[in-house]
Design a protein around this nucleic acid. Structure first.
Lengths: 235, 235
DNA sequence: CGGCCATTTGACGCCAGTCAACACCGGTGG
DNA sequence: CCACCGGTGTTGACTGGCGTCAAATGGCCG
């Protein structure tokens, strides 16, 4: 049986390459790397669960996770994705609340556990870091509010186009204009906030209109300006 | 002609009564009150506008404001309300972005302007304050994500019930079980994320079911447990 | 091969958005 | 004093976007 979690050598991880740790002193980086425990996780494993108590945070060293909330009828709403360099779970540490989202691996990932004490001590001891973390949170809040407005006001069609563009921004396209992220139709639906069948139907439409090309879970963006227009996305 | 903005004596405002300033030292409170300029604003006045650059923040000393985003078709989506003790606009200061929301007075308000420099210097100089502000932001982010999920998954009926309960939590009921906040039907719709007519129709239904009583903009909550049930609200 | 899950397509129905008409009210000006 | 007006609230009729249910297909894996 495959183990879903395996220890990884910390030495292999270059902490300084993560933007969020930019403001830390060498001494702090050193102390951080001392307390880190890095592990690898297979697709599907849950890192933390909505409603559970979190005592630490994770820095994503590789792979991709989805961060989602579960609605009262069990349907997932994807809030955002986390990829290399992202810090996840610190919201609960700071606000001293139970986790309000679930984090699940969707591309095999390497995660480094950062004890909550370390986070708070850095916040209190290093204004630079505090400011960086706060900037991050405020940006995220801005994103969340924007998304809220979109879901409340736009049609599913508009939102799907927007989500495709968002995925492009977050995960890039390869040399063939294909999204580098692979999601199930259901995951797409859980981003857009609609039913799986609706996503499938609209993707077919987009394909028929030569806006995209489909090959299993691979989505190739053919006409980005048109997608921007459909999604009413202003940059 | 009525002036929509008038200077108010700073001495009358007790800064220490605002939770957010709890962590500040007496010296910091002193320096803060030196730089404060407090003004009164009538219903309808805009404090800052989506897309504008903000150089400072406001502490609400009294009254109520709505914080909203404007969708691409001009429709407002109310993100939250601000009342006495709330600090508004600091998100843009911290994240160094343009304002992503508009703040408009809906109950005559007294606002004290806090220059951005003061905010950032407090964040950098006072870990306690930094932590408090971050806690606030993180809680708000949690709220926003929850609301996002609700709008994506719940029906308008459920959301309206939820919004009524939210208003109760935020603004309390008077001795007659009536919401202490007065909103137009359109503002209610812009909270719920629906059309004005839908809100009116559903309020009538709630009234017919003896869940609420209506008297102009006054809404009296008659059966809170049932509203909780309708809104699928778990505490 | 059998079973499970993801994907797709079709049919159906309803929630809720839109349009239109009208009542109501306070304010304004002739 | 009354007529007019703009903003707000209410109700009815209509329709279409999209959610739900059901069934067929195909791929993957034990």
């Amino acid at each position: 049986m495959k183990r879903s979690q395996e220890q990884v050598n910390v030495e292999e991880i270059d902490l300084k390459s993560f933007d969020i740790f930019n403001g830390l002193t060498d001494a702090e980086i050193e102390s951080l790397s001392q307390s880190l425990v890095c592990t690898s996780h297979k697709r599907g494993s849950v890192i933390y669960d909505e409603g559970s108590r979190i005592n630490g945070s994770y820095i994503v060293a590789g792979g991709v996770l989805k961060i989602y909330k579960t609605g009262f009828d069990g349907k997932e709403q994807i809030i955002r994705f986390a990829k290399g360099g992202d810090l996840i779970g610190f919201r609960s540490i700071v606000s001293d609340e139970l986790a309000c989202t679930t984090a699940r691996v969707i591309q095999d990932a390497i995660l480094c556990y950062v004890p909550g004490d370390i986070i708070t001590s850095f916040i209190k001891g290093n204004p630079e870091f505090a400011m960086a973390l706060m900037r991050l949170t405020c940006r995220e809040l801005g994103e969340s509010n924007k998304f809220l407005t979109d879901i409340a006001q736009k049609t599913v069609r508009e939102r799907l186009a927007e989500v495709l563009l968002l995925l492009m921004d977050t995960f890039d396209l390869d040399e063939e204009h294909t999204l580098k992220i692979s999601l199930t139709r259901e995951e797409l639906a859980n981003m857009v906030g609609t039913a799986t069948e609706s996503v499938i139907r609209l993707l077919s439409e987009f394909k028929a209109d030569h806006l995209i090309e489909l090959n299993g879970r691979k989505i190739k963006l053919l006409n980005i300006p048109k997608l921007i227009k459909i999604g009413n996305v202003y940059v």
